[in-house]
Computed example of a mutant assay.
Amino acid sequence: MTEKAPRIALIHATPLAIEPVNEAFRRLWPAAEARNLLDDSLAPDLARTGQLDEAMVERFRRLAAYTVDCGADAILFTCSAFGPAIDRAARDQAPRPVLKPNEAMFAEAMGLGTRIGMVATFAPSLPPMQAEFAAMAKAAGSPARLETACTPDAMPALAAGDAATHDRLVAEAAAGLAHCDALLLAQFSMARARDAVTERVGVPVLTSPDSAVVMLQRRLVAG
């Protein structure tokens, strides 16, 4: 009997995140069954309210519960501005693995040095990600510190189909963090810019999709 492939639910707040993470699954873990759920009202609603209120937390609980009803063995959120809401939603799904967008990338980065640079293209994602990194470093006893840069014009360029401008803007922002021990690309949609960033900096460049796929495979397959 053929062993059932693990089903991974991917929950997105923007369609721009869908292809990068699915490409990472095809390349790094093709045996997994990745399935996508998109709610593209999440980011505009967060931008309008300016806070992760209880109504938003409840939406994340319902999104996670829906994917479980559909047979998910694990859940990966790709929307990096919603960490606290994901934390609270994830508790309802224990012991099923639930990953926040940058959890795996942050853990990997802490093994690469103490000065970690991160470039973002969606400004509202920075405060929760900075808090998440600091909390993870403290829990791990790591002295790692996060330096950030944001290039807000890059995401609209990508959404308009101008991928070359997106990659150029991300690489330019990353160049200002070349003194760091490693560079992180905050949004899933930024993974496509890794080669352009690598050409500008002489340090390891990590992406959320690759790190997350590797961590999920380790948790579900390697135990």
Rank of each mutant, 00 (worst) to 15 (best):
E103K: 02
P143Q: 05
A90G: 05
A164I: 04
P143V: 03
A123S: 10
A123T: 14
I86N: 00
A135E: 04
P156T: 09
A171M: 08
P124E: 10
A109T: 07
D92G: 00
A191L: 08
A163E: 15
T121P: 02
A90Y: 09
D73A: 13
C79D: 15
L185S: 08
A74M: 04
A139W: 10
F82M: 13
A140S: 12
A65I: 06
G161L: 10
T148M: 08
A139I: 06
Q187C: 04
N102D: 11
A174Q: 06
A107W: 05
A160V: 02
D87H: 13
E108G: 09
L177C: 11
F82E: 09
A175D: 09
G83L: 13
N102Q: 11
L112S: 00
E103W: 05
F133N: 00
L183V: 13
A160H: 06
F188W: 00
V68D: 10
G83K: 13
P128Y: 02
T165W: 05
S189K: 06
R88E: 04
M110P: 05
L99W: 10
A157H: 06
G176Q: 04
L63T: 03
L146T: 04
M118H: 04
S125R: 02
L184G: 04
Q187Y: 06
L158N: 00
P156F: 14
R145G: 07
A72Q: 00
D181W: 09
V98K: 00
D181H: 09
A178L: 00
L112H: 01
F77Y: 13
T121W: 02
L184E: 08
D73M: 09
